[in-house]
Design a protein around this nucleic acid. Structure first.
Lengths: 198, 198, 198, 198
DNA sequence: TATGAATGAGCTTTCATTCAT
DNA sequence: TATGAATGAAAGCTCATTCAT
């Protein structure tokens, strides 16, 4: 009971730091966000920050990881509603989901930069038991690949590359509109994915 | 004569700042590199820095741009020696060239991060008349695409995406060895490129 | 039984703080040693520190006092083995003992700085009944003086000055090698002591 | 002209830091004096401090050195007025001068602690050409010794030890009144010095 | 253009101290 | 007695920026 309260308290401090940092990173940029500002916003003493993170960048990593994982989690959860069909359909669904999400959340994309990563995602959901459900979803996707003649390993590598590509293209075309607006790039991207997966 | 000397002098200061910054960024990291350190290494007064760049990040951008452009320039220049064949052969040649380069120059890759970009490359060579030769090379590549049923625009967009993908995969697999060592990823990458381009 | 255990426990905590502090003061310097570090090394909670000492400097004083007293105690104990002879012989024996000790324990000397003191020594052994034996030794030395025409008081003052001189010269010549190496200074010091005491 | 103004300015900054630090060290103690307070008092920006000293203790050393050198300088200068007589007369004159000075300036003594040092004094006056006159005085004193059968080296070592002894005794008896009031210790000290030098 | 001493805001970080347990 | 998470004041220090030369 004592312990649980403490842990709760500890978690709530971590979470408050995390969410305060996220909002400041988004609104003012990482370099312009100070630890002072983060703790002030979180209502936590400055010294307490250093009980949880050793510097701003450790916290930044956790924010990016948290946010990028969340997006993939949502996309995956939605994709599961699809009828079992061809993997390229599921892949394109997920890609479209992420693109639409980032179109709505540009500053989140700016923060994540090109650090949307399947590898990081897998690591995170492996560590944490809360994600048992998500692990199930991943298995479904990878199994889908296996049914199309990929080994487990190769399947994961292909997914990895596609997610990296997705992140990069989102950043370029949504933030910089380079080489064209995302709506121009989307069909091209879909076409490329189909060619890769079919 | 006076003017040209000035320009030369100015250029040489710019260049000294550029190369000093590059070396410090590589060896100590961007955040840990101060303007003082850059000017000290360049043998230039601190105040003079502000005559050329408004802050560290402007200089950082120029460094990244310079380095990433250079790599693509070299790859392109080498690729031109290939016999005119299928575009996927040329593409794979360029990709392999870049991968091998980054395997040898990890800290350069760490600096460029995932900012290897075809768009930035095009912009740079457009601005500068020194690159007339390179422009020719680009034209050759894009024309190659045109011969395979792509419009000029679409060709450029495909190249853009491929370069982004290349940058991301290099960073992940060479720096982080994620999801696997680059030598494992290379054949997979080639396979995917062939599927896209053939 | 309960009480004695408590006292024992308290004493053991005091002692653990004392010896942890000593080691840290020696190895990192006083200013660079934090209360956190002392309690961590002692395996004691930070808050507990304040049950025993009110701040770092109180503890430092106890450490210096403890160490400097110990050295004089040892020197005195050894000197007692000498045949009763002239006081300058005993004095020189003690001085030599201390010098040789500090030559072997430079960092202890650095900590004690010039705070080797006969006055502090007397106070300490007066307070503590464990030192009954040492008190006897002191008496022997001072009586030795009395036999040479000094009053009790004057004897103590001369000893006091000699010990101060010893501490200062040790620090200068062993730590700073100023104005010369201790082995050069030793005979000179002996000569001066003989002149004073004979 | 430009240069001289700058140097002047630089010197004045150093001097203002030095004297502000001295006053604060004296009145609040070293540990309780912050760099902020020193620069505030000196009317100098905090960052400027670090152009002159790398930390508080470097400045403290310079303060102690400056003050202790000054006292010895004054004592020496006064002693020169004495008729050429026996060295013990001159020595006792100097010792008395220093004692009387410290009786009037206890907090200066508290700061110098036991760091009154002939070695440090010699170093300082050697470095600085302003002290040509003082160097002359030193020579007179040491020559005085030479006339009494000491080598140059030995003379300096004896003076060194006497000064150390003087500093230690002053601190103990003036600040701590240990083992007795300075007025009680003085004749004893004189007696000891005579024995050593005659 | 070029300099670099000086600035001072504001950062990161420490750490003595408290207090609920 | 004993604990150690939390505090927050305040320290040391950096460094982008300015400006007189």
């Amino acid at each position: 009971m004592h312990i649980s309260r403490r842990i709760l308290n500890k978690d709530s401090k971590r979470e408050r730091l995390l969410s305060s940092a996220y909002e400041l990173f988004i609104s003012k940029g990482v370099n312009e966000t100070t630890i002072s500002a983060i703790t002030r916003k979180a209502g936590i003493a400055k010294g307490t920050f250093y009980l949880y993170y050793s510097d701003k960048y450790e916290l930044l990593n956790e924010v990016i990881l948290d946010k990028s994982t969340n997006i993939l989690k949502k996309a995956l959860a939605e994709s599961i509603k699809l009828p079992k069909g061809h993997i390229s359909d599921r892949a394109i669904f997920i890609v479209e989901y992420v693109i639409e999400y980032f179109k709505q959340h540009k500053s989140e994309l700016r923060l994540i930069d090109k650090n949307l990563s399947w590898g990081v995602f897998l690591e995170k959901i492996d560590q944490n038991d809360d994600y048992a459900e998500i692990k199930g979803l991943c298995k479904v996707v990878i199994d889908d690949f296996a049914n199309h003649g990929y080994t487990q390993e190769k399947a994961e590598q292909v997914v990895f590359i596609l997610i990296e590509m997705l992140g990069s293209v989102c950043y370029s075309s949504i933030i910089l509109e380079q080489p064209a607006h995302i709506d121009t790039m989307k069909p091209l991207l879909f076409e490329m994915i189909r060619k890769i997966l079919d």
